[in-house]
Design a protein around this nucleic acid. Structure first.
Lengths: 251, 251
DNA sequence: CCATCTTTGTGCATGCATTCACAAAGACAT
DNA sequence: ATGTCTTTGTGAATGCATGCACAAAGATGG
């Protein structure tokens, strides 16, 4: 048995790099915008600019999907929209459940970006009995007790967890046991799942912390630059304006 | 002038890889949990398990911060919490503004993970005059007109954009002009900013699309496995149970 | 039908990240 | 003290991603 690298001529080869997959939605969004403006074709350069990436990277990304461009012209917008949608699996209907209808869960339920991309919110689930029946984004909230039945009745394979951290693992276990194989986790916890189940996490505070790191670094460099400038100025005063002297350390 | 790699003995060296920075908040969270349970020390193996990463990776990550472990024992939890916090810049106060107080903005304002990490929501800003003055998460919403003044009065350097896509770039421009140098963008748009300004984006629908891709791949592999099994069975029937025949293609 | 010009698709080089595997460091018992 | 045992910190190997730079492809005009 060969290790199976690109054994398929030009059809959907299995070896699309993760980094590329992560960018496809970005391209898709830019292409959709072009499509709405009835732009017929787009060059890699233009599309790359719209998506905020390097054009060589974009071309390489597309090359994993097949040769969908025309040299000298560019890419057909509609065709590319279709190809990327198909590759991402957006041409089919994905029923999704959201568990945990607090502020965030409600925001997600109302988020327009889901419905417009083939994702259908099949159910909203919350552990609070007082929430049961109350409509959020036009969908009545159901109680956690019915989680398993809801998953099975709707053929749900993607679950979104927006519960407090403490409840997340337990909810996750129940989702997986009921047949969910992909989970989007907004709770600030590391979820453990069996093989074959995908988890992606979105952590609001982690992103801020990364920003803070860079922010601090910027401030630090500025301060350092100031210090260096001051030191240079002081040196200037001590040594006169030529300054290339093997200086003796002041005490 | 040297290229400046690790020119400082053990202090905060500037060359911490991005990938490591992105994991520090993860470690910090795991360590905080241990700290709350009054665990004094932790080995790289244990902590790595809690953070959901490889232990060698964790040790290498920590090695960029300095030698904070004790061989044969592990890491001192409290000390490490402090060191990582300091490295990430969480020992100082970061006033943050949230622009766009819809469902998501409100969820962010209410999100506990910010306040507990040195982030202080200094102001909530929305373009809707009807929102002005209305308290969300105990903080009165202010109108966009006052954006510049709010930024300056509070010394805000981090802004969170939770507006619709159409308004994001404009808000971003105003934030940057007013002095914000780090932006966390929840709007599904590519923001363009001048050099020196950091942007991180969180896109809810992109994450779902990536999950859908893998979900489809799983389904496809299953179907393929079934097909292969069927093919093998058919072959078995045609050729008998040894099967290692240089088969002639059927027409 | 040929020449020119644009734009794709990709081989190659470079750099970053991950993982392995082990020597050095220290705790702890005897 | 000395030896054993655990766990860190890191060199080295591998793999993945990025971006350059260019040949091949095709459109377009004469």
């Amino acid at each position: 048995m060969a290790t199976g690298r690109t054994h398929r001529p030009a059809t959907r080869s299995r070896g699309i790099p993760e980094a590329t997959v992560a960018r496809l939605p970005l391209y898709l969004r830019a292409l959709t915008a072009l499509s709405e403006r009835s732009v017929p074709t787009v060059s890699s350069e233009e599309l790359a600019a719209a998506a905020g990436v390097n054009s060589a990277k974009l071309r390489k990304d597309f090359s994993y999907l097949g040769s969908y461009g025309t040299r000298g012209v560019g890419y057909d917008v509609e065709y590319l929209v279709y190809q990327i949608s198909r590759e991402l699996g957006l041409t089919q209907d994905w029923p999704v459940v959201i568990v945990g209808i607090g502020n965030l869960g409600a925001a997600l339920a109302n988020y327009g970006g889901f419905a417009s991309r083939g994702f259908r919110v099949a159910a909203l689930i919350d552990a609070d009995p007082a929430m049961a029946g109350k409509p959020v984004a036009g969908i009545p909230v159901q109680h956690t007790d019915d989680l398993e039945k809801i998953i099975k009745d709707n053929g749900v394979s993607i679950g979104v967890i927006a519960t407090p951290a403490g409840a997340a693992q337990q909810v996750c276990d129940r989702l997986v046991a009921a047949g969910v194989t992909s989970i989007l986790n907004f709770a600030p916890t590391v979820l453990s799942v069996p093989d074959g189940v995908d988890v992606r996490k979105v952590d609001l505070s982690i992103e801020l912390q990364i920003l803070a790191f860079h922010e601090q670094r910027k401030a630090g460099e500025e301060a350092e630059a100031v210090l260096e400038a001051e030191a240079a100025a002081a040196k200037e005063i001590r040594e006169g304006p030529d300054g290339d002297v093997p200086a003796v350390m002041p005490a």
